[in-house]
Design a protein around this nucleic acid. Sequence first.
DNA 1: GGGGTTAACATTGTCGACAATCTACCTTTC
DNA 2: GAAAGGTAGATTGTCGACAATGTTAACCCC
Lengths: 216, 216
Amino acid sequence: MTSYIEPLAQESTPSIIADKLRKAIGHGEFKPGAQIVEADLARKLGVSRGPLREGMQRLTQEGLLVSIRNRGLFVIDMTPADIRDMYLAREAIERAAAFKILRDGDFETVGLALLAIVDQMAAAEGDPAAVGELDIAFHELLVRLADSPRLLRMHQTSIIETRMCIHALEETYLGTDARAIEHQRLANAIRTGDVARTDELLSAHMDDAIERLVNR
Amino acid sequence: MTSYIEPLAQESTPSIIADKLRKAIGHGEFKPGAQIVEADLARKLGVSRGPLREGMQRLTQEGLLVSIRNRGLFVIDMTPADIRDMYLAREAIERAAAFKILRDGDFETVGLALLAIVDQMAAAEGDPAAVGELDIAFHELLVRLADSPRLLRMHQTSIIETRMCIHALEETYLGTDARAIEHQRLANAIRTGDVARTDELLSAHMDDAIERLVNR
DNA sequence: GGGGTTAACATTGTCGACAATCTACCTTTC
DNA sequence: GAAAGGTAGATTGTCGACAATGTTAACCCC
């Protein structure tokens, strides 16, 4: 049981706005390449342009938006090169996360938690959207359980980009059964504390994902 | 020879401000834990609070500043746990960068470029500040030559944190001769395309750095 | 008709002012 | 004398207005 008394961290308005924008971009509400018009969005969110601009600067820093001076901010367009680069970064982060868990975390518990997601994934077979979300949940949990603020923050950005990709492709991004098995193997490697196999599976998993996204 | 005709990217004011702030933090002009007072800083920079706040939001996203609502923004205080976490992230990024160079880059040229920095480092022996800067330049170049926008962006943040640490310690962060040798070995491993040895040396190098910083 | 100029419009960039909030100090009360 | 309450100052949060810039389309000239 956690204590009810804990330091209350009120989020700043810009950070709330940034969160909402990330979700919107990840779920395809803003299409890649689309311009974000400040006045419109500010009205929709019920804030003035100041806090909105502050929030958008965060996404610019993350590389989710690109700024063209006196023109505006645009959602990034994920080229094949971007997809490859994004997976390079994701692999770096997730390998480090997995490694940390195996070295000084409770890898057995982590492995079991990941297997729970795999079970849901198997149950959701046939529903690409649900499997996609569970896929992301798997990787998010992996990094969260590594207990590293920096890896988690960096990973968050990559996850949005991943979501952008699978959302843009929607129906094409299939192979739902194969993916459940891949994740199961990975979770088991972690559960048994097998460093080499975890590394190997993670690399292969990322390569597969690139294949699926780029050569559709 | 690069073409003179290239898309001219005028930086936005917030991004310029963010750059200046990063430099200031990295060089100890803002001490860890210090509050950034908007009005003062805006006056010093010759801009109004709007653009300044936008720039500061970028650093907040990077984790270099922490925001406390209605209180202000503060420079992070690097605890030993933070130092460890930062090196975990840096190792993840640099390993990925090195791996990419070895896999599909011109590792020989990269190795030679890195050795050039090592030479300067050997020449600067006895001047801790110069060696420190060259140390950082080495790692910056490594990631830059990997040609990955995402790794480079994430690395930039870690580098500022590194600079904060070595600056805070100043004179204590020694062992200048040992460091030149460590870097030389690493550059040679890359030059000869030795993946396993590069990985091993990079890990060891990061562990050493943590030792030097935490157990001072 | 093609190229160039101009004007209107839309959008972003910047600023100053005001409101909300917190901190620190002083005062009051028991 | 200690704790509660109140007040003044400082700082952040938010907003609306104006300036600067870029884009589009109409118009004119060759």
